[in-house]
């Protein structure tokens, strides 16, 4: 529809977005793998999702293709549903355990 937009956006190189998103994503992954508090892990997961959102939006804008942004909408909606369920689970555990440290949850062994 409008060829102008991508050009405006391209003043920031695509790589920057990719690097930024990858960095965010990596922070999220590292957080998930190293942190022991369920809420923090959960937030790291959200960080990963947001990294994806950034990346998709960037690609979408660069290609003047709305699909990527629509995808972002769906990710947000689904993430909301995930948040709902996830928080419910964490609240449930907290009420049983008074704690959200996943290390305490070792009744099921690896």
């Amino acid at each position: 529809m409008d060829q102008n937009i991508p050009q405006v956006i391209q003043t920031v190189p695509l790589q920057y977005y990719v690097f930024f998103a990858t960095a965010l994503f990596s922070i999220g992954v590292v957080g998930v793998l190293t942190r022991r508090n369920a809420i923090i892990i959960f937030m790291c997961v959200e960080l990963m999702l947001n990294a994806v959102n950034v990346l998709l939006t960037a690609f979408s804008a660069y290609r003047a293709d709305p699909n990527g942004q629509i995808f972002v909408f769906f990710i947000m909606a689904v993430a909301a549903a995930e948040v709902a369920v996830g928080l419910a689970i964490i609240v449930m555990i907290y009420r049983n355990l008074q704690n959200t440290d996943v290390n305490l949850l070792n009744r099921l062994k690896f």
Binding site: G28, V45, M48, N67, G68, V85, G86, I89
Partner: peptide
């Protein structure tokens, strides 16, 4: 409870990875 939490954390973590993959393929 713990199963739910583990499943949830792993599942959403996985979703993140899958999505990042999708995003890169899209890119």
């Amino acid at each position: 409870n713990e199963a739910a939490l583990k499943y949830f954390l792993m599942g959403s973590f996985t979703t993140g990875i899958l999505l990042f993959g999708i995003a890169l393929v899209y890119g």
